[in-house]
Computed example of a mutant assay.
Amino acid sequence: MTDLTRILDQAHIPELPNPYFGKVRDCYDLPDDRRILISSDRISAFDRILAAIPFKGQVLTQTARFWFDHTADICPNHVLAYPDPNVVIGKKLTILPVEIVVRGYLAGTTGTSILTLYKKGQREMYGHSLPDGLRDNQALPAPIITPTSKAFDGGHDEPLTAAEILSQGLLTQAQWDRISAVALALFARGQEMAAKRGLILVDTKYEFGTDTDGQIILADEIHTPDSSRYWLADGYPDALENGTRPPSFDKDVIRSWVAARCDPYTDPIPEIPPEMIAATAQVYINAFQAITGQPFVPDTTGATPLDRVRKNLAPYFI
């Protein structure tokens, strides 16, 4: 059973400068245009933290590492070093105000997902025209980019078209052309490699920034279980035929458990049982192994994960 005591619930390290604590990551800006990004084990949903899942931060950091290594020929990324299994030292970038979502299938559950809009009768969305007659979760004629505005002030991301991105001055034509080409190439590489592992990369989001030279750099994470939807290829044909949800890495166990017991947006979150925490940890570990084809080796050095992270980041103390 997963050791439920090995949790990095926070990485508040006073010796590191310029902290920024997000929902899942704890970050520090170094004075030389580098940034420390520490992936905690917190799991977020309903705009709040629900729990901490053992080894989740290591899984996400190492999954992204696998994909950064396998896509560096397509686009440079922000990674400079990995001093710890949960930590990336990256270039400090100016993040572009558009989030890029690439979709290969008619899927999704949110109000702005293309499946939801399609079922309402819309055929024109995000600047694309979809044909009639598509079934739930069917492959699109070709992957499409469905960009959204990136809400830096806590607001909600809003759907955009390419024309709106340019007319609003969010990106230049050259930036949009470059990002579009790179995103589709990254997605194609991801789908190709996932297929060899018996997986379908359904959709994913990418975040880009620019460095001091104006070069476009891939930031954040790539093709992780949190930023991407994967289906298990073996079960997909039957699910498509039956109109059911294709089998996937079901990380929604905690989300569903909480939503069944309270209004998660307003009520206190009930205590989540240890067996639910352990099951979710195993989902993340299984996802890492399925996506990368590598065994997951949990780093259990140090008295606690925070002690280990502090020791590994000591060279960066100010």
Rank of each mutant, 00 (worst) to 15 (best):
R6G: 08
A11N: 05
N18L: 11
N18Y: 10
Y20V: 15
G22S: 03
D29A: 04
L30D: 02
L37E: 01
I38W: 10
R42I: 08
R42L: 04
A45M: 08
R48E: 02
Q58H: 05
V59W: 07
L60S: 04
W67V: 12
W67L: 07
F68Q: 09
H70K: 12
T71S: 12
A72P: 01
D73R: 05
H78Y: 13
L80M: 00
Y82H: 09
D84S: 10
V88S: 15
G90H: 06
G90R: 07
K92A: 14
L93F: 11
I95A: 06
A107E: 10
S113Y: 02
I114C: 00
L115Y: 02
Y118C: 00
G121P: 04
Y126E: 00
S129L: 12
P131N: 11
G133C: 11
G133H: 11
L140K: 01
T148V: 04
K150C: 02
A151W: 06
F152Q: 06
G154W: 12
G155K: 02
H156Q: 12
T161N: 11
A163E: 13
E164G: 05
E164Y: 13
I165S: 00
L166T: 10
Q168L: 09
W176M: 03
I179Y: 14
A181I: 09
A183G: 01
A188Y: 01
A188R: 13
A188I: 13
G190Q: 00
L201S: 05
D203W: 10
T204P: 11
F208T: 07
T210W: 09
T224M: 03
P225Y: 07
L232W: 15
Y236D: 03
D238M: 14
G243P: 00
P246H: 09
D250L: 06
D252S: 14
S256E: 14
Y265N: 06
T266I: 14
P270E: 02
I272H: 00
M276S: 13
A278C: 06
A279P: 10
F288G: 08
A290W: 01
I291E: 08
G293R: 03
Q294W: 11
V297N: 11
D299C: 06
L306N: 03
V309F: 06
K311C: 10
P315E: 05
F317S: 09
I318C: 14
I318R: 14
